[in-house]
Design a protein around this nucleic acid. Structure first.
Lengths: 273, 273
DNA sequence: CCAATAGTGTCTGTGAGACAGTATAAG
DNA sequence: CTTATACTGTCTCACAGACACTATTGG
């Protein structure tokens, strides 16, 4: 049928012309936590952690998954959907959010075709430690990569601890994009191991050329703390002088000082916007 | 209702539990073209171009848009959908493809809620110059950015030429992600000006830390050609010695030579995988 | 020979890696 | 005074920017 005007066309448009599907968002909420050491002099060790929720219904009942939810197509954008989920899980609404990737394997959800846009969210854990919803829990996450492209994710929430094995291969010779496939996983639902790995990889990359890290920091922090956050995300030790040179113009010194650590006090800095 | 097993749950699952929507893919097919100069001695000037299709139906009838199509949820992934579209438009099926971003403004399509995952595709234009479908056309694209964050896109297919004005602002203080908004546009359908800009930005970034550029090159090329491709994408002049140092280990010299240019012949190189 | 690009040699400045050294609190 | 971290000075090396220089072709 031919219409004369766009208005007329739209009035007669049948939205069922193309088959439809459901969409969800999955959120990788990342934070860095400190744990006190036994030796009173030593600084606290930092660990990266992500929030996981326990599935209390099928599919993947009893397994852990990234917080997420179905999109309400008439009402919200994907980012708004992600914000809604974050609000439910953490009580907070001003959390850094960034779209990561849209995962769309045909059988990634056994119920039906569901395409999921994943988001990275970064937060300073101290902002919400008591508020998270009771089906969710923080897991310390450790990556270990072998030379043969095996990748191991270890997750530990102090109560449960488990490992997942993935394989990493270059998708094209001419790109940086990796294709991950899960080799051994009895604990994480859906394609979430791959989502998590993709998210951590993005975070690692962005650390070097953005100020993204300050979304995970409190207002006042020492350069030692900041360096430890870098180290735990990049999974390698950095040298203090070089690190300080690099971030020098991103931070500003304050009058405050952090004392009581059993050694020389550390000046508190602030993010310079 | 409670089910005992996942199998039982799935058998009784109602896919209409969550409201559904349509998805599309949009493809930014990018290539670099040469145009002969009047002076026989001069090397050909290179331009970046993208493929646009003319809309022959509402909405946006008569305007230009990125090639794209609706996803068939039961049959294909987004990438397969993009490949299908590319095959129709160019006749080729082995084109570099990479997911860019999922655009999801609620009213981005006047017909109904449509979420679109955009893909970047790179090709050597010589591979397909005669094959493209007849509703599509290559447009040379030029970006011009003013200090006040205005961005101008100029598109020219030799027949039509038009400009679009956008505004660019940082989405968050702590990220590199820009938010674009269209200020003046009478020629490009949907949110495609923003999609294009996002795509070109991604391409520019990736040029520096991947081998992505070789997807746009023929098998044999001179370093001068390669440098010109870099220059047209980065929109700035490069110095030959520095450029050659940087790409030295990505390419390998061949026995072939390009002659007949009115000046010293140039050695042909090949991508070193 | 001329014009234009191809390709190389080398100086210089910047900035990261490395390491040694000084500073300072708690106990 | 010891221990552990905070913080700084400085050497070196790698490498990008810059520029000058040589090489080679078609006309």
């Amino acid at each position: 049928m031919q219409y004369k005007t766009e208005e007329e066309f739209l009035k007669n448009y049948d939205p069922n012309k193309f088959e439809r599907l459901s969409m969800t968002t999955d959120i990788i909420l990342i934070s860095v936590s400190s744990s006190k050491q036994d030796n009173y002099r030593k600084t606290s060790k930092k660990k990266m952690s992500i929030l996981l929720a326990k599935r209390d219904d099928y599919p993947y009942k009893g397994m852990w998954c990234l917080p997420g939810g179905f999109l309400k197509p008439k009402e919200e954008t994907l980012e708004e959907c992600a914000k809604r989920v974050l609000k439910t899980e953490t009580g907070l609404s001003n959390i850094y959010l960034e779209q990561l990737y849209t995962f769309d394997d045909i059988n990634r959800d056994p119920r039906m075709r569901v395409i999921s846009s994943s988001y990275i969210a970064l937060v300073d854990k101290n902002r919400l430690d008591q508020k998270i919803s009771n089906n969710a829990s923080w897991f310390d996450i450790t990556l270990y990569e072998e030379k043969d492209n095996s990748v191991f994710i270890t997750l530990d929430n102090g109560d449960v601890s488990f490992s997942i094995e993935l394989e990493k291969k270059l998708k094209e010779k001419t790109t940086d994009r990796y294709k991950f496939s899960t080799k051994k996983n009895d604990y994480l639902a859906f394609d979430h191991p791959i989502v998590i790995l993709t998210g951590l990889e993005r975070l690692r990359n962005k650390l070097n050329y953005t100020d993204i890290v300050f979304n995970m920091m409190p207002e006042y922090f020492t350069l030692g703390d900041l360096q430890q956050v870098y180290e735990v995300i990049l999974n390698k030790k950095l040298l203090a002088p070089a690190f300080r040179r690099i971030i020098a113009d991103k931070v500003e010194k304050t009058e405050k000082v952090k004392t009581g650590e059993g050694h020389r006090p550390s000046v508190l800095y602030r993010y310079r916007r």
